[in-house]
Design a protein around this nucleic acid. Structure first.
Lengths: 118, 118
DNA sequence: TACATTTACTACGTCAGGCGTAGTACGACA
DNA sequence: TGTCGTACTACGCCTGACGTAGTAAATGTA
């Protein structure tokens, strides 16, 4: 297995980003590190995917950007915070996830196909 | 909730179709009815999505088409059967699903956000 | 102090799957 | 006779993911 394909993860990137922004405002590089570690290295979001998600979600009003820097005052970066609309959107995505999971699982075999014990 | 978005279901349509073809060869209309009923009306595949999936999967060698008709001999239709490659592909998709589920769930809150009990 | 690496992005273009719209054709049913 | 259900095909658009490339400041390293 090579990992998670883009067709499968499509639609969940936004959810993952918003989940992390629920906790605190953050920025690209930090988010990408957190996705990697929280998924136990099982999923690494591509930079372009991440930044285009930021742009899209800001345009849709789910997040707001602001300029910030680290404690030392150096390293200017663009931070994002989640909005009320973003929270609502995140909740809708979670509900959709539960529904999707319920549906998809009906089409997934748990048994080993190769053993023919069915 | 409006249902399952195309971005979220993307990547699972093939899996659902192949699952049904594992049981027996079938054709477009029947598959679509089965997806609808098996998902308890929660997901209805679009015709164009279904038929383009057939074309794509046949090109990739996961399914094979053959001409058939119903018991009465009328109603000609194109049936599809799953190939060995299709079974392998289906199994890979199932494994990917388990992995995806594991990853996505880490980004889904079970608690109610609105009650702030966190 | 020179150079590589890490951090933190932006720009541009391509690709694939899903889907809207439309149309065809045949059989059943009323 | 006309509508509905069945069983597709054709065409083209849209969106999110992603490959490639480039920029630039900060940080680590020899």
């Amino acid at each position: 297995m090579t990992g998670i394909s883009s067709d499968v993860i499509r639609g969940y990137n936004d959810t993952m980003i918003l989940f992390l922004l629920l906790e605190k405002p953050s920025y690209g590089y930090e988010i990408s590190k957190q996705i990697k570690s929280l998924s136990q290295e099982k999923y690494v979001i591509k930079e372009t995917t991440l930044y285009s998600a930021f742009t899209r979600m800001e345009k849709n009003g789910y997040i707001q950007s602001f300029s910030g820097s680290d404690e030392t005052g150096s390293k200017r970066r663009t931070y994002y915070r989640i909005t009320e609309e973003g929270i609502a959107y995140y909740k809708a995505r979670c509900e959709e996830w539960h529904l999707t999971k319920e549906v998809v699982e009906k089409f997934i075999l748990k048994e080993e196909l190769s053993h023919g014990n069915n």
